[in-house]
């Protein structure tokens, strides 16, 4: 049968309609992207080698991205190196029109069409889920190791889907290897291993079936809710001092003279907790100034204090987003996905 735009052939093997989404394909495509990331890492390792070698590596990595991008209907359009890890930014790109000559002149081609998965949002969700699963697996491996286990026996939660369980098992073993590599057998004493990434809000599918699992280190006695309560107290204290003393806006906990004991709360699950602190602090400080401005505009002679913090990012340390840009969660940000 001659394939043409007017007379399309039936879906080829693996081809999917717009409404049909194959989670397994998403998982596999994401793994392919990670392979590309590994390849890019290796390209980086060869950054001091010959030009020819770099070209060869780069081409392989590009083909990897190209294949994964084509197969997932997204364009893996850019990569960069950040803190020793390759990062791939995947962004949905409107599909280019098919070259019409293909149908006329090239109809004998036997290469099957790649999977067409309309899924930027789905992929983003998948990446979020994957990161959460990775965190959970790393956490569980650390707990098992500390409890004296000597074999990696992953026990994925029952509410995981089959692909999620597969990811969990792989990540669990990887985390286990990382733990045992870091701690030589002769010195292997129970150690607490924190999740490699902070556990943020779990994916919907998980959240709907189970309460958010505490992400504290096993030795901590507080629930995550209690921790968040304490963080809120600290943030309120910092915001009050900022307002009362006319200090510069600074949403970092360490900028507010907390005691070492108080600061310990930020050593576990650091990013999420610091973000929580920053969010509360930001809301309170900006809320105060906005209210104050409405009630009684501040005199212009003190621009540092008079200006709402969100409008003077120059007073804020370089790291992290500006207050007004505080991220609301993983995976957000204009349709971009970052695989770490």
């Amino acid at each position: 049968m001659i394939e043409s735009p007017e007379n399309p052939s039936p879906p080829a093997r693996g081809e999917r309609t717009q409404d049909e989404i194959d989670p397994e394909a998403e998982v596999f495509a994401a793994e392919a992207l990670e392979s590309a990331a590994d390849m890019l890492d290796r390209t980086r390792e060869h950054s001091t080698s010959t030009r020819r070698r770099k070209i060869f590596h780069e081409a392989l990595a590009t083909l990897m991205l190209f294949a994964a991008g084509a197969a997932t209907d997204v364009e893996a359009r850019h990569h960069s190196h950040d803190r020793g890890r390759a990062r791939i930014i995947v962004e949905r790109q409107p599909r280019r029109p098919q070259p019409p000559q293909y149908y006329v002149e090239r109809r004998t081609v036997v290469v099957e069409r790649p999977i067409l998965v309309p899924f930027t949002d789905r992929l983003r969700q998948h990446v979020q889920e994957r990161e959460t699963i990775q965190d959970q697996a790393a956490y569980d491996a650390g707990v098992a190791f500390r409890a004296g286990a000597r074999e990696p026996i992953p026990k994925p939660p029952g509410y995981y889907t089959a692909p999620q369980q597969h990811i969990y098992a792989n990540e669990y073993r990887a985390a286990w290897e990382e733990i045992t590599r870091k701690v030589p057998p002769a010195q292997q004493v129970p150690t607490i291993v924190s999740p490699r990434r902070s556990l943020t809000v779990p994916p919907k599918s998980v959240a709907e079936t189970t309460p958010l699992r505490p992400t504290l280190a096993p030795e901590a006695s507080m629930s995550e809710q209690e921790v968040l309560g304490q963080i809120r107290v600290l943030a309120e204290q910092a915001a009050r001092a900022t307002i009362a003393e006319g200090r510069d806006y600074d949403d970092r906990p360490e900028a507010h003279g907390f005691s070492r004991e108080q600061m310990r709360i930020f050593t576990t699950n650091a990013k999420a907790r610091r973000d929580a602190f920053g969010t509360v602090y930001h809301d309170l400080v900006t809320g105060h100034y906005q209210q104050h401005r409405q009630e009684k505009p501040r005199p212009a002679q003190d621009p540092v204090v008079a200006q709402p913090p969100a409008q003077r990012p120059e007073t804020r340390p370089a790291q992290g987003p500006a207050p007004a840009e505080r991220p609301q969660g993983k995976g957000e940000g204009g349709g971009m996905i970052i695989l770490k």
């Binding site: 020819r52 070209i55 060869f56 780069e58 081409a59 590009t62 083909l63 991205l65 190209f66 991008g69 084509a70 364009e75 359009r77 850019h78 790109q93 599909r95 280019r96 029109p97 098919q98 070259p99 000559q101 293909y102 002149e105 090239r106 004998t108 081609v109 036997v110 290469v111």
Partner: peptide, 29 residues
């Protein structure tokens, strides 16, 4: 010819970055 056709089809997905990399590769190898 089949491979050329394959590439013609796949170039619908190509990006300038990918094209640059492949052109350099083809030049060198």
């Amino acid at each position: 010819d089949d491979d050329k056709a394959f590439w013609t089809y796949m170039l619908a997905y190509a990006t300038p970055d990918m094209a640059f990399s492949m052109l350099t590769y083809m030049e060198e190898f």
